[in-house]
């Protein structure tokens, strides 16, 4: 579904991404793990057109999207659940949900119902300002907002960050549920253990380069990965 080839991104003089290549097949969950500052967020933000690349290629459903405008990219069916959630704090929960569907012209009722099935907490709090939600609820809302665009590819940047273990479990369960509904997922995680468990493919990033790749289950038992990211 998406193929990234030899992607290079610089911030001023700093090379944040040094020529990485990977692909996300349709219907899969692919995860990108790596230490802080490895360039994971930069990669996602470049795919979304928020950061300009130096060189390389990003093809989505066969078409080059590198250098395209963010609005163009998201209208093709890509969405991003950004690092730190980035809700609109002074919009209500309901407005945050609806704004996720900004580009859609059709009825939203069924989607909203589905969202409320997935996240009953959001239903109770639909009138509340998003800024007043708890961290876990905010993350749910960020996922809900992204889903409202009916994405083909959903990119998620550390959705489990700062959440209690039980909530993290819930979030991962929902990621799988969304995936089963046919949404392809590109997931960035610090929580390598959980991410690799649900991923079809995993890529390990270190200082701007991909150093390891393989099916999630294999990386989970890989010695290097275990030492560096699984703390054992």
């Amino acid at each position: 579904m998406i193929e990234v080839e030899n992607l290079k991104v610089n911030y001023g003089g700093i090379e944040a991404v040094k020529g990485i290549s990977f692909s996300v097949p349709q219907g899969d969950i692919v995860t990108l793990i790596g230490a802080n500052g490895a360039g994971k967020s930069t990669t996602l933000r470049t795919i979304a057109g928020l950061v300009k690349a130096k060189s390389g290629s990003i093809r989505f459903m066969g078409e080059e999207i590198l250098g395209k405008d963010t609005v163009d990219i998201v209208s093709r069916g890509i969405t991003l659940v950004p690092e730190g959630r980035r809700l609109f704090p002074d919009l209500t929960v309901m407005e945050n949900i609806k704004i996720g569907a900004y580009l859609r012209k059709d009825k939203l009722d069924d989607d909203i119902e589905w969202i409320f099935d997935l996240f009953p907490r959001l239903k109770e709090r639909h009138w509340q300002l998003a800024g007043t939600l708890s961290g876990g609820e905010q993350q749910m809302l960020a996922v809900a907002r992204a889903l409202m665009s009916r994405p083909k590819l959903m990119m998620m940047d550390e959705p489990s960050l700062g959440l209690a273990p039980l909530i993290v479990k819930g979030i991962f369960r929902i990621i799988q549920e969304i995936n089963q509904r046919g949404v392809t997922i590109l997931l960035i995680e610090q929580n390598a253990n959980m991410a690799l468990r649900i991923a079809d493919m995993g890529y390990v990033m270190e200082t701007g380069a991909i150093t390891l790749q393989g099916p999630g289950k294999e990386l989970l038992v890989n010695d290097e990965v275990r030492q560096a990211y699984l703390g054992s």
């Binding site: 979304a48 963010t70 969405t79 900004y102």
Partner: peptide, 23 residues
């Protein structure tokens, strides 16, 4: 209105507004 919602969203966060598809 939807336009107004886009205006309020953009006034908080250009980048995320763009990700929502707001021009």
């Amino acid at each position: 209105t939807k336009t107004g919602m886009a205006m309020r969203a953009a006034s908080r966060d250009f980048e995320t507004a763009k990700v929502m598809g707001i021009n």
